[in-house]
């Protein structure tokens, strides 16, 4: 196959920087006309990344400044770098408690979402049953429905069950949009596994639960990982429902940020430091799923 041949030549040709490598590889495979857009492409990409990183840089920059420096002087980097803002957060339980609360309900939500979505996604990808299409659409509408619509009765609903201000309440509330999402993504990944595998396993005498755990789940392990990432992400970034359902004991960090700032006036430095700390968990997990992010966003359907 000529494709394979050219590809191996390309990879053999890769020298130092990615810029040079890619441009050279392109020049070899594609016509000369494509060369100029590649350079243009690097310009576009660089500008776009600068645009993405500038606001984040500004937040990081602020988090290392003293409040005096933030309000009185305008500087592109901290003239008098300080760790005070971070120290405030790590020594005050009401601050770092917020992180623990957020992580707790996010993890709970991820576990619940995946546990219930796995069998459902299997059912959707393998069988036809009464009302399957409409059930699937109904799940989708829950992902699309504005949380503000549900926030109204949620407080009463969770009060009736005595769940207000608990982690499980937020975890359950976030299932509203995470379970449909998990079913969608998992269904996409499962549909990529040939059905012959199921049939062979049943012929070999595997029971359904054993087949599912021993054979099927390892096959879609990357799909489960991506789904976990997405559940984590959407539970982590959501605030409206999380804030509605908590008062003190389970309050998420993002809500503590807004409250503390309005109460204590303008502690910009601590605000910025808290913001930076909310970015870090996300940044850490992205690295592990970077090659699957797009597939997950496409609900497993690329």
């Amino acid at each position: 196959m000529s494709t394979g041949a050219t590809k191996s030549i390309d990879t053999g040709r890769q020298p130092g920087t990615p810029t040079a490598a890619s441009a050279k590889a392109r020049g070899f495979v594609a016509p000369p006309k494509l060369r100029r857009p590649r350079h243009l492409g690097w310009l576009v990409m660089t500008l776009y990344l600068i645009f993405l990183l500038l606001p984040i840089y500004w937040l990081v920059n602020m988090s290392f400044k003293t409040n005096v420096e933030i309000t009185n002087t305008f500087s592109l980097w901290p003239n008098d770098p300080t760790l005070r803002n971070y120290r405030v957060i790590f020594t005050d339980p009401s601050w770092y408690g917020g992180y623990i609360n957020s992580i707790t309900y996010v993890v709970m939500n991820t576990v619940i979402s995946i546990a219930v979505a796995l069998p459902a996604a299997y059912a959707f990808s393998r069988y036809r049953f009464l009302g399957d299409k409409h059930l699937f659409f109904w799940l989708l509408t829950n992902r699309m429905a504005p949380p503000a619509v549900f926030a109204l009765p949620f407080f009463q609903l969770y009060s009736a069950f005595g769940l207000i201000d608990t982690h499980i309440a937020v975890a359950l509330a976030h299932c509203l949009f995470n379970v449909p999402l998990a079913v969608w993504i998992l269904e996409g990944f499962m549909s990529g596994v040939p059905r012959e595998i199921d049939e062979t396993a049943y012929i070999d005498g595997y029971s359904f639960p054993r087949f599912f755990v021993k054979i099927f789940m390892p096959l879609i392990a990357s799909g489960i990982g991506v789904t976990a990432f997405f559940c984590f992400m959407f539970s982590w970034v959501e605030l409206l429902l999380a804030r509605t359902l908590t008062t003190t004991a389970a309050k998420p960090i993002a809500a503590i940020m807004t409250r503390t700032v309005s109460a204590s006036g303008l502690d910009w430095g601590v605000l910025a430091a808290a913001g930076v700390l909310t970015i870090i968990p996300g940044a850490l997990v992205i690295w592990f799923v970077r090659n699957y992010i797009a597939k997950g966003f496409a609900l497993g359907r690329v």
Binding site: P153, Q156, L157, S159, A160, F161
Partner: peptide
């Protein structure tokens, strides 16, 4: 379980 809050 109290469902009065649902205001049926």
């Amino acid at each position: 379980m109290n469902f009065a809050w649902m205001a049926w």
